[in-house]
């Protein structure tokens, strides 16, 4: 755990000492805030509760639905400079909530969780932002961890196929046929649906379905960070695109790596960079 942290720091230090020219000793690091806004097509997500039969949202396949839960982990935030070197937000896990670094949880229900501040980014100009939706092997293979990785607190953990659920969406739809294992709805709710996207075992040579997905934004204009510049990137997640191609009548409960992969395949295109506030 510590080793990884040190490694990440070293890599970033090495990377940045090599881009000498655009760096002076007086450079001060800056921060980047990723601001997530969850939408459905042209509309904001309107959260519903268990049992509510109003359906404010529509899929691209013209099925009505509402959303009771929407959450995802964001990690491995990476900034790539114009010269190709990258700064990776250091990752660390441990038993105390404060030990967990570099892994974030965005929950529709908690507005504060929508803004993720990546601090201490070396001053420079960057042309690419990327992040992972999900928690990769380090978050699991270093053992039990606290805070947003604590299943008694905020974490969403699969006990049977140990790992964190990268992204989950639950709600109700007239066409849905009920998901008895939904996290936020009663087991006998006849119109619930639950899509739990997990599966992180990216073992070379194995055939596990890997559902953590990298989202990448190539920037049209250089992004300047540091020396007083602490920009915000406004990012949307469009639920219409996230569940594109999925029919509630055919899929009300997606709870395994293989079952969740159609949703996971949509992740890279469902996120969009709307604007950057310098």
């Amino acid at each position: 755990m510590r080793n990884l942290l040190t490694l990440a720091l070293l890599v970033s230090i090495l990377s940045f000492s090599s881009c000498g020219d655009d760096k002076t000793p007086s450079d001060t690091p800056g921060s980047l805030t990723l601001s997530f806004d969850n939408i459905v097509g042209d509309n904001q997500v309107i959260l519903a509760e268990e049992g509510i039969t109003e359906y404010p949202h529509t899929t691209l396949g013209q099925q009505d639905f509402n959303i009771v839960l929407l959450r995802y982990y964001v990690s491995q935030v990476t900034l790539e400079g114009s010269n190709g070197v990258a700064y990776v937000d250091p990752l660390a896990v441990g038993p105390d909530p404060d030990d967990v670094e570099g892994i974030y949880l965005v929950t529709e229900r908690q507005t504060v969780s929508h803004n993720i501040e990546i601090a201490n980014i070396p001053a420079g100009t960057y042309s690419k932002i990327s992040f992972l939706i999900g928690v990769d092997s380090t978050g699991i293979q270093e053992g039990a961890a606290g805070g947003i990785l604590d299943p008694a607190a905020d974490a969403w953990f699969w006990n049977w196929n140990a790992g964190y659920v990268a992204l989950g969406i639950e709600g109700q739809a007239p066409e849905a046929t009920g998901d008895p294992a939904a996290r936020t709805m009663l087991p006998d709710n006849p119109n619930s649906f639950g899509y739990h996207v997990g599966g992180w075992k990216d073992v070379p040579g194995s055939m596990f379905v890997y559902n953590n997905k990298v989202v990448t934004f190539n920037l049209s204009e250089q992004l300047t960070i540091g020396n007083g510049s602490n920009p915000t990137a406004n990012i949307t997640l469009d639920v219409q695109k996230l569940i594109e191609g999925i029919d509630f009548a055919e899929a009300s409960a997606l709870h395994s790596p293989l079952a969740g992969s159609p949703v996971s395949e949509n992740i890279p295109n469902a996120f969009e960079l709307e604007s950057i506030e310098q």
Partner: peptide, 23 residues
């Protein structure tokens, strides 16, 4: 299904046919 010893007890605690309790 479980890849680290730490996570093993969660199954026993939460499975309704073992300890049936929420963590």
């Amino acid at each position: 299904g479980v890849t680290h010893l730490d996570f093993v007890p969660l199954n026993a605690i939460e499975a309704d046919f073992e300890m049936g309790e929420e963590i």
